[in-house]
Amino acid sequence: MLTESLRESMFSAFLALLRRDILLAFRRRTELLFPVAFLLVVVSLFPLGIGPGPNLLARIAPGVIWIAALLATVISLDGLFRSDFDDGSMEQFILSGHPLTLIVLAKIVAHWLVAGLPLVLLSPLLAMWMNLPLDSLGVLIVTLLLGTPILSLIGSIGVGLTLSLKRGGQLLSLLVFPLYVPILILATAAVMAASDGLPYGAFLGLLTAGLVTSVTLAPFAAAAALKISLS
């Protein structure tokens, strides 16, 4: 049984950590821009490599934007627990008495606000570059809003597992990309269905289900992974 005061203290710990992480991220503004710049560069490479034909670009737009978002997320994920692990804050979090799952969730939310949300905000520009029909832009934004948090959540498990490795970042992509397959399929299918004028509600429903499931389960797995890495 949770007493009222305990619940309150857990909630305030959650908010304090969230605030701290966002504050820390904004102290290093240049680093904040790396995933965004990466996303822009990757997407701009596709017209250069494939050719500027507007129809072809429109056809591959959802896939290109989503794959670029996937890569940008994995690039930014490496920093999720890194600095706290290096300076010993992570041990303090575990010793603080608050559930590690809650702390992990706060860090994931902060990571998404700092690294995931900019990708969503940038998507209209990318859609314009890739000649995506305006009607499906709304669906693209919704899939990114539902999907990028899942990327951060599942990714946090991989980050937790590779934390104690020197070159964890390279292994991370191998660990998490297979787990990202369903999200990529659902999100791009939704946008393509919208472009073709087909119903897309089911895809968004499944993505929402994925979001709910991963919010519920991923923090526990990530906390377990962190404990193994710190042992």
Binding site: I157, G158, L161, L175, P178, L179, V181, P182, G210, L217, A221, A224, A225, I228, S229
Partner: peptide, 16 residues
């Protein structure tokens, strides 16, 4: 660590 990853993969396998 690898066992935990295998377990996460098992949960995801039907979804994939």
């Amino acid at each position: 660590a690898a066992s935990l990853l295998a377990l996460v993969g098992l949960v995801n396998m039907p979804i994939i």
